[in-house]
Amino acid sequence: MSEIMSAVENVPSLTETNELVAKTDDTGTKYLTFKVGGELFGAEINNISEIIEYSDMTRVPFTPPHIRGVSNLRGNVVPIIDLAIRLGKKPGQPTKRTCIIIVEMEDAGEKMDIGFVVDEVDEVLDIHEDDIEPAPQFGADIDSAYINGMGKLNGKFVILLLLEQVLSISELSQLISDYDLLQS
């Protein structure tokens, strides 16, 4: 009987040690950092499917300025968002370093690709959970709903974007409908 009891008692302690091992092994989540409007941002790498060169795209009439247009991605028509405008910053002129980051978003079980324009792609980083501070209520100059957290990087802060919010399909299509109503 006592043997059984001790065995049972041993179980949680075992998992505890496992967790400890996992934690020390874990180097944190991977983030892609990029510059928009001169500021450094980061986004979790999970949703990002590819980064492509910036090229001219087709404008779509009757859409607000943050919809940069649509582009041909291997035979599919993909909407491209101007991230600077979406975050309330001034749009920059495209340069040699301007890129489009393609992410796969999901809405009501339906997957679709969306691209967004950034001024420059920086690097892929591991940011440990302990190095992420909660978003400030104000002062970051962008809607706090779009912020996942503030990553500490060499003593500086990187705004980690919550792409699910920034590129939310329902929000974007709502914005377009509102803009449409306003125009007509």
């Binding site: 779509v60 009439p61 009757f62 649509v70 028509v77 679709m112 299509s173 377009i176 449409d180 007509s184």
Partner: peptide, 16 residues
Amino acid sequence: KPMGKILQNVKGISGA
């Protein structure tokens, strides 16, 4: 080509 959920409600264009 379908324009996807985001752009499908824009009146005056029917696709790409």
